[in-house]
């Protein structure tokens, strides 16, 4: 069986633009990007608080499609908290996504979801959530929980 392959090289305007004289150095570009991110930090982390609160309501409810809604919210918390340096909160959100993905189309295990949401609430302000060893122990515990609830039945 032969497969027809067509190869071609589209023109890249981006390359030509990037190489034009002028512009900024990478160092300046990164500094300005980080400054821009700092300018929206409070707004974004305020929204993260609201997303965690929504997750808590969804976790305790019985709404149809709540698994998908929680997956989407948790994915947003993962990306946004991580982007602002809240690595532990981001890791918990990622763990919740893994748990929910393993139960796609089915009811997610309520207790395991609630534990994740409580951990998110605690790690939103890591400085108030115990020492680093305690926080690592929480993350380790959640990993075990996800493994347990994601294992194939049988």
């Amino acid at each position: 069986m032969s497969v027809v392959v067509r190869k071609f090289e589209p023109d890249s305007k981006l390359k030509k633009m990037l190489d034009q004289p002028g512009g900024v150095t990478a160092e300046q570009a990164l500094a300005r990007a980080k400054q821009g991110l700092e300018s929206i930090r409070e707004d974004c982390l305020g929204a993260t608080d609201e997303k965690i609160a929504s997750l808590q309501v969804l976790a305790g409810g019985a709404e149809a499609g709540r698994g998908e809604k929680m997956y989407r919210l948790s994915n947003e918390v993962f990306a946004e908290a991580g982007g602002f340096g809240l690595g532990e909160l981001s890791a918990v959100a990622h763990s919740l996504c893994s748990l929910l993905a393993a139960h796609e189309g089915a009811q997610p295990p309520r207790a395991a979801v609630m534990v994740h949401v409580e951990a998110m609430r605690a790690l939103r302000r890591p400085e108030l959530a115990g020492d680093k060893a305690a926080r690592m122990a929480v993350l380790q515990g959640l990993r075990g929980l996800v493994q347990k609830f994601s294992a194939p039945a049988g």
Binding site: V24, A29, R32, A33, G36, L37, S39, I40, D43, C44
Partner: peptide, 13 residues
């Protein structure tokens, strides 16, 4: 909010 973050980064660039 993820979009806001991307916008800030690209404007910074």
């Amino acid at each position: 909010h993820s979009l806001d973050m991307l916008v800030q980064i690209m404007k910074g660039f």
